[in-house]
Design a protein around this nucleic acid. Structure first.
Lengths: 155, 155
DNA sequence: ATAGATAGTTAGTGCTACATCAATGATTAA
DNA sequence: TTAATCATTGATGTAGCACTAACTATCTAT
């Protein structure tokens, strides 16, 4: 058959769109975050740490899907600016438990505030409710579950 | 638990989440797409070209937010496999109008089909309806407008 | 007709994000 | 004690991508 796979079920793979949109965000974010001494991946790490504080570095490597050795460097950056703290786990003293410091939380908040303009630009076509919806969906996809989405959508 | 000192306004910046999720998709996509001779950014380009066929390379560079010189290489890859065709614009013969070939459309469809497993894995926490919703939101954000989102959400 | 701008191509340079491998010290588990 | 585990450091390699410059073909204006 002469493949008309499109008619039956809508394909609708989000992967490429996700990649594309993320790139747009990242490009702009880099310049906005630079004065704060952060890079996009620092922000990702801080964001993850805010939600799941007290992660071990292995856990962090798993959720960020990065090699452990690169996590070290990432955390070195953040710890050098006192944004995160590594302390040894009391249960297993080989492990380092990583936590957001107060300064880290503040910096993160500041960064997010600074990114408002970026999101306004990149997500400009979305209404406030839709952005919130997007946020919830992303959150949920990343968390595996939880993340309550109060859905009130209009076009 | 109320661990929020930032409680005033919900920040909810999607940027980092978007970046994070896109990375997850990209990592898996690379291995899935490899046998098809594609890379994530090829897929992005093909996806864009499917929607807005007949773009000039400049337009492509703009929407992909890539440097023009890199677009050339990208299209060389795709044209070498006959997935896209460059033809000169009749109005302005300096311009190249880029279009998805039939083979390109097929390959794209095949790639999207192959990515089903990836999305199942990465977006596993989302229901079918939520994935559709996500798709629509991404589409809309990238398109600037259009993209009808039939919203039927449940948790 | 000719001069300048514009679209695309090619090649070269360099930065950055990563993965990967190897070696080390600290700690736990067998 | 010996072996496995976690974090760290350093070295090496690959790839995406930006940036620049030079070149061709074509268009536009004078």
């Amino acid at each position: 058959m002469t493949s008309l796979p499109v008619a039956n079920q809508p394909v609708h793979r989000s992967g490429a769109l996700l990649d594309h949109l993320a790139r747009r965000v990242r490009l702009r974010s880099e310049t906005v975050l630079a004065p704060l001494g952060l890079r996009p991946r620092h922000l990702i790490a801080l964001t993850v740490l805010r939600e799941s504080a007290g992660s071990t570095q292995q856990a962090l490597a798993a959720t960020l899907e990065m090699d452990g050795t690169n996590i070290v460097g990432l955390l070195n950056d953040l710890e050098a600016e006192n944004l995160v703290a590594r302390r040894r786990s009391p249960e297993d003293r080989r492990r380092h438990v990583v936590e957001l410091t107060d300064a880290g939380a503040k910096r993160l908040a500041k960064a997010e505030f600074a990114l408002a303009a970026v999101e306004d630009e990149v997500l400009g076509a979305l209404s406030e409710a839709q952005r919130e919806e997007l946020y919830c969906l992303l959150q949920k996809a990343l968390a595996g579950s939880d993340a309550r989405c109060t859905t009130a959508l209009d076009d």
